[in-house]
Amino acid sequence: MEKVYQPNERRFVVVDGGPDDLDYTYECYRSRRARLSCGHHATPSSLTDLCTRQLNEGKSSFSCDTCGAALPYDEVRIKALLTPEEKEHFEKTLAFNATKTNPDTKICPGCNTSVARRQLSNLSVNCRVCTKRTGQPFEFCWQCLKKWKGNRSRTDRCDNDGCCNEALKTLKTCPVVIFQDIKDISSCPSIRACPTCGALLKHSGKMCKNITCTRCKIQFCFVCLQLTSKCLPTSNYFTPCAIPVAPRQTSIPQWNKD
């Protein structure tokens, strides 16, 4: 169904022609453009398509395709006329992309700003922006990204239904990778957590078995999870490792930047 602005959305819609106080009809708003915070314009469909493409590119925030200015999620949600399904998809993908590119930050479910966690052993995180805005402490779960429920200082989960570690779930359920240029390697998961920093990385199956982490820039073997410098002396880029395929990971390595 085509996305169309309604007359009650005139506060941000650019309507060509007619006095400002004209009571525009539904048809007058077909394919009209929204005035973005950066000053440029977009239809609800074009804004949805732009932000969907940026999500698919792995971005954890939105920006204007013309000038590059940041577009807050709250603005996108309203001006793109996101459906409930689109909102859920956008919010989950934003959070996943933020975790993938920078595991040290998450998107607050209250204000959709990036929040860093001070205590790595505590899943309950306080958002300063929401706390300042509402005048009351606002805490959310680092794992399920919902408003915190239950006792604090927990490391496993909060009391929200379905709370689980999505990264570990991904590592557990991802399909195996089929290496096109390496024979005799099977049962290797297609997604691994970098053994140095914990960032989730996916192997396409093309080229060699080694991969360079996009976050910490360390190269390691995707098959045995050893650093490339330790794997290569007993094998090469296109042959099986001297040790068996590393099993699916059950924990996320913490990056010690020191």
Rank of each mutant, 00 (worst) to 15 (best):
R118C: 06
R118Y: 08
R118M: 00
Q119S: 09
L120I: 08
S121C: 07
S121T: 12
S121H: 12
L123K: 11
S124I: 03
S124L: 10
S124G: 09
V125N: 07
N126Y: 01
R128W: 02
R128D: 05
R128A: 06
V129Q: 06
C130T: 06
C130L: 11
C130V: 07
T131R: 07
T131W: 04
R133K: 11
T134Q: 00
G135Y: 10
G135A: 11
F138I: 08
E139N: 10
E139I: 11
E139M: 08
F140I: 15
C141S: 12
C141M: 12
Q143I: 09
C144F: 14
L145A: 10
K146Q: 15
K147W: 12
K147N: 13
K149M: 15
K149C: 14
K149P: 11
N151E: 14
N151T: 14
S153M: 09
S153I: 07
R154F: 09
T155G: 15
D156L: 13
R157K: 12
R157E: 08
C158Y: 06
N160A: 13
N160Y: 13
G162A: 12
G162V: 13
C163A: 10
C164H: 03
N165A: 02
E166G: 00
E166I: 05
A167P: 00
K169A: 01
K169M: 01
T170I: 01
L171Q: 03
K172R: 11
K172V: 00
T173A: 04
T173R: 11
C174V: 06
C174G: 02
P175K: 11
P175Q: 07
V177L: 07
I178Q: 06
F179N: 04
F179T: 02
Q180R: 09
D181C: 07
I182A: 09
K183Q: 12
D184T: 07
D184K: 08
D184P: 09
D184S: 07
I185L: 05
I185V: 10
I185A: 05
S187H: 07
S187W: 04
C188G: 03
C188H: 03
P189Y: 02
S190H: 02
S190P: 02
S190E: 03
R192S: 00
R192I: 00
R192W: 00
C194L: 01
C194F: 05
C194W: 07
P195E: 06
P195H: 07
P195I: 10
